[in-house]
């Protein structure tokens, strides 16, 4: 198929066929990560800048490993999110980096839409590694790979997502992806953490966790923080744990073979009990493993997608390689 995307800004930009193509590509890259020499020359000579305006060890590391396994030169830049304070605008920061001619910028930023903003203004590919509370496409894709790994396919799955939906970019990407590929999504959490319009996005919304868990194939727990943007949305972590946490008792409401996912980092004893976190249904480390393969696929596709209107000699090269 013709994958016509130079940027990866969100799940929203892809249709079902494209999403499946990315997932298939990721599956192929997964094999490399099991080899002794975990490196292929695919992106040799390419430069990838990991531009992180927000601290994120695991996503950054995952993208860095993905880039290195594809033989790209990866550079990590930790920038301050409050560029306004420094007096340099996001555009200026990005232009400075672009002047060094990277092929791909992988960006994490605290402002929703920041990657969109950058992609409109720069010539290189932009991959969204999380923008504000908007999207986190690579996380949704690695979640999908993990669900397919354990459940065969996404179509027909009941996925329960529980926690702070309002402040979760992971959820927004996941809802879109899961719906496009035929799964149904149930959402649960205290009403202080449920934004308006979830029904319009096709989700079933519950304020009781038990209702969302019943018969679920996949349970995705979100990280809870007491303070969000200076607001207290719940009285205490203790109370949250009691009414909205996942434990062995309410987990029994889900299907017996249900898998448990978490985008990490987990708060043991808050949104997930230790017993469940260490239980056999937990696939959190599979998520991490699949993350590298998904990010390799995104880097590969973004790099190849850069010349859609190919030059005249493309046909020639294509033919020569058809041997």
């Amino acid at each position: 198929m013709n994958f016509a995307h130079r940027h990866v800004l969100g799940i929203k930009q892809f249709n079902a066929e494209e999403l499946n193509f990315i997932l298939d590509t990721a599956k192929s890259f997964k094999e490399i990560n099991t080899r002794k020499i975990k490196k292929v020359p695919t992106l040799r000579g390419r430069t990838i800048v990991n531009l992180f305006f927000e601290a994120s060890t695991r996503t950054r590391t995952s993208f860095e490993i993905a880039g290195k396994r594809l033989s790209a030169d990866t550079v990590n830049i930790s920038a301050s999110s409050s560029s306004v304070v420094k007096g340099e605008t996001l555009e200026d920061t990005a232009r400075n980096i672009e002047a060094m001619h990277p092929d791909i910028i992988v960006m994490r930023h605290s402002a929703s839409g920041a990657c969109h903003y950058l992609a409109e203004r720069l010539d290189c590919s932009v991959i969204n590694a999380g923008d504000g509370t908007h999207e986190h496409p690579s996380q949704a894709l690695l979640d999908a790979v993990t669900m397919i790994q354990h459940k065969g396919q996404l179509a027909g799955l009941n996925v329960a997502i529980i926690g702070d939906i309002t402040h979760s970019r992971v959820v927004r990407s996941n809802i879109d992806l899961l719906h496009k590929l035929g799964a149904s999504v149930r959402i649960a959490g205290p009403k202080t953490m449920l934004p308006p319009g979830l029904e319009r996005l096709g989700c079933k919304v519950f304020s009781r966790v038990a209702e969302a868990l019943e018969g679920a194939d996949v349970v995705m727990m979100l990280r809870i923080q007491l303070e969000r943007q200076g607001k207290t949305l719940i009285p205490s972590l203790r109370e949250y744990s009691r009414y909205f946490g996942l434990n062995e008792k309410n987990l029994a409401l889900a299907k017996p073979d249900a898998i448990i996912m978490h985008p990490g980092p987990m708060n043991r004893g808050v949104e997930i009990s230790s017993a469940v976190a260490d239980g056999a249904q937990n696939v959190i480390l599979d998520q991490v493993e699949n993350g590298v393969a998904v990010r390799m696929a995104l880097l590969y596709l973004a790099a190849g997608g850069e010349k859609q209107n190919h030059d005249a000699d493309e046909g020639d090269i294509h033919e020569q390689l058809a041997d």
Binding site: A4, S28, Y300, G304, H310, D313, E314, I317, H318
Partner: peptide, 12 residues
């Protein structure tokens, strides 16, 4: 020849 063509499927 990456970059001289649109994306090819990656097989296993």
């Amino acid at each position: 020849d990456l970059g001289h063509r649109s994306n090819l499927e990656v097989g296993q």
